[in-house]
């Protein structure tokens, strides 16, 4: 088990390294021109571009810039030259091209927002989706099953930027029966946090619940037809014990997989959800940084998202062994 985890972690680190190289390279290979962006929609005179490029450290070869960026994460670094240099202690993710603020500070502000969205919506989607899926598997062909299939289809075809805007327009601005989506730190105003997060949670939760419902139903149906379930029934166990203890547990592994990947993806920023609901999380930050050619923030958000996805992949793999005794990690 330990050896497996160490091996997986090493692979994870290499993956992150590759992602960082690719992102850095893509940024310069693509159509980014940070200095010109800062000049706005006018041809900037070369001298000003030069000055901005110098102040951003963009004049050096790409590999040097990359090296600086990466070593800053581990050892910290000084950004700029001479008396005006900014001290950026490890883990240094650079400073924003636009505002000169340390990227780590910016990320720290966005992370609680993204985490709130991720955890809240994941809980709703799992509870709702898994119960719906199981219930419909147990009552196969019944009205609940039909509803569940319909729900899963609708949920899978709707998009957050459609449903989210629609719900906001109708519930928040027209009927005025739902609180406006906003983020307040739970430590400052817990009820305000709950109420401000509720619409994004419900929207994202319900939409992702559809996936869970589909998987849970399919998996349950398959397991229910297996021999060990029949044996359990034959032994005279109550239907409850058969369904929950035997069948559900066996079908959990696929649900855990989706859950882990979903949570990992969301923690790194739900770009569309955050943009739709105007939540200042990592996702919205990333979208803006891409538009602004703000390389340090692009790097940081991409690496963060990748980190969470990789991390949860490892966790999910490790969880298999716990959930399913047939799985051995090696």
């Amino acid at each position: 088990m330990l050896r497996y985890l160490i091996k997986r972690s090493l692979i994870a680190v290499i993956t992150l390294l590759m992602i960082s190289i690719t992102t850095f390279w893509l940024f310069f290979a693509g159509s980014a021109n940070p200095a010109a962006q800062m000049c706005g929609a006018k041809a900037c005179d070369a001298a000003k571009i030069e000055r901005i490029n110098k102040s951003l450290g963009l004049k050096d070869p790409i590999h040097e810039q990359y090296g600086r960026f990466m070593s800053g994460i581990f050892t910290g670094r000084e950004i700029g030259e001479g008396a005006d240099a900014i001290k950026c202690p490890a883990p240094c993710l650079g400073v924003s091209f636009r505002t000169s603020e340390p990227v780590l500070d910016i990320i720290e502000r966005g992370l609680p927002v993204s985490a709130s969205i991720a955890v809240g919506s994941a809980v709703i989607s799992v509870l709702l989706g898994v119960s719906l899926g199981i219930a419909s598997a147990l009552k196969r062909g019944g009205w609940l099953d039909k509803f569940s299939i319909g729900f899963a289809l609708t949920g899978a075809s709707l998009q957050i930027f459609f449903l989210g805007l629609l719900l906001q327009m109708v519930l928040v601005y027209q009927l005025k029966i739902w609180d406006r989506p906003r983020y307040v730190p739970p430590s400052e105003d817990f009820l305000g946090w709950l109420s401000g997060m509720s619409l994004p949670w419900v929207t994202l939760g319900v939409l992702s619940a559809a996936t869970y419902a589909r998987f849970a139903r399919a998996e349950m149906l398959e397991i229910l037809s297996e021999d060990f379930v029949r044996t359990a029934r034959a032994k005279g166990l109550t239907p409850r014990a058969v369904n929950i203890k035997h069948a559900l547990r066996a079908s959990l592994s696929s649900i855990v997989t989706i859950f882990g990947l979903q949570l990992g993806g969301l923690l790194g920023g739900a770009a569309i959800t955050e943009t739709t609901f105007d939540m200042p999380g990592i996702g919205k930050l990333a979208v803006k940084a891409v538009g602004d050619d703000n390389l340090p923030i692009v790097m940081a958000t991409v690496l963060l998202a990748a980190f969470f996805v990789v991390l949860f992949n490892v966790i999910v793999d490790a969880m298999y062994a716990v959930i399913d005794p047939r799985v051995k990690l090696s």
Partner: peptide, 12 residues
């Protein structure tokens, strides 16, 4: 400089 309008996702 003119403020760059943020990317708007707007289905409506």
């Amino acid at each position: 400089r003119h403020r760059v309008r943020a990317l708007a996702i707007s289905a409506l």
